[in-house]
Simulated assay, not measured.
Amino acid sequence: MAAYIVLLIACVQPALVLGYSTAAGPPACINLTPQHDGTIAQNSTPPYSLFVETNSIKQGGMVTVTLNATATDGYFEGFLVQARCTKCTTADTAIVPGTFAKYTASDGTIQTMDCLNVTKNSITHTSEFKKTSVMFTWKVPAGYDVSQGIKFRATVVKSLRTWWNTVMSDEISVTTSTCARSASAMAVVIGSIIASLLLSHYL
């Protein structure tokens, strides 16, 4: 009987570890809470930062984001990063459906993740290898509502029992794309030309 119990533990233990060592699990998508049994988020200031290269991005544009350990000897084993809407009525759960990608295609330490069945709207780790920094890109949706702001938010795991879920970037704004502005300006010009032609026809 004891042998069967040992065998059962041996089979179950890797599954529990894989819940955070090879990627964040689907249950973490909404509240950014790792599925580490019996653990809670740290309430101290996170020893990590999310740096965004710009505070303004155009619709359909791309931005580079870096997750860093800020302590001298700091590191992290796992993470999950998403773009969150800051002015939506459901800001705490509004994942912006942009597209994450590796900054370096050959980087085997990170991978994109589909949360709530939306393609590549999150990015996470591939193993529990200790990291001090990871870099990735994010593309804003072409039709994103420019009245809404965006912040990147992360859960960062130092160890199985030590993690923070309040790591956030500065807020970035989204502006109308050049193409959209050009199309709008062209529409105004065409409208003016048509109005002038109609007016001259009746004079």
Rank of each mutant, 00 (worst) to 15 (best):
T137A: 02
Y103H: 13
T124Q: 00
T109H: 10
I110C: 03
H125A: 02
G143S: 11
N117L: 12
D114T: 12
T90I: 13
Q82D: 11
V134H: 00
G108Q: 08
S106C: 09
S106M: 07
A94H: 13
T86S: 09
Q111G: 04
Q111T: 12
K131G: 01
A142G: 09
N117I: 14
A101V: 01
P97Q: 06
K102P: 01
P97T: 06
T99P: 02
P141M: 07
A142P: 14
T99N: 07
T89W: 15
M135H: 09
G108R: 11
A83Y: 02
K120H: 13
I95L: 00
T86F: 01
T93R: 15
D92Y: 04
T112C: 05
K120I: 13
S106L: 15
A105D: 11
N117F: 12
S127K: 00
M113V: 06
K120R: 09
L116W: 08
T112I: 03
M135G: 11
M135Q: 12
P141F: 04
K139E: 09
F129C: 08
S133E: 09
V118M: 07
K131C: 09
D107Q: 04
V134M: 01
T89V: 12
A101G: 08
T126F: 10
D114H: 04
T86Q: 02
G98A: 11
A94L: 03
T126Q: 13
A101W: 06
G143H: 11
C115H: 04
I110L: 00
A83H: 07
T119M: 07
V134A: 02
D114P: 00
T112K: 00
G108T: 06
N117C: 07
C88N: 10
A142E: 15
V81Y: 01
K139M: 08
T89Q: 14
T89R: 14
V118K: 12
S106V: 13
T90M: 14
A91R: 05
T132C: 02
V134N: 00
A142F: 06
T112H: 07
G98Y: 07
G98T: 03
A94D: 13
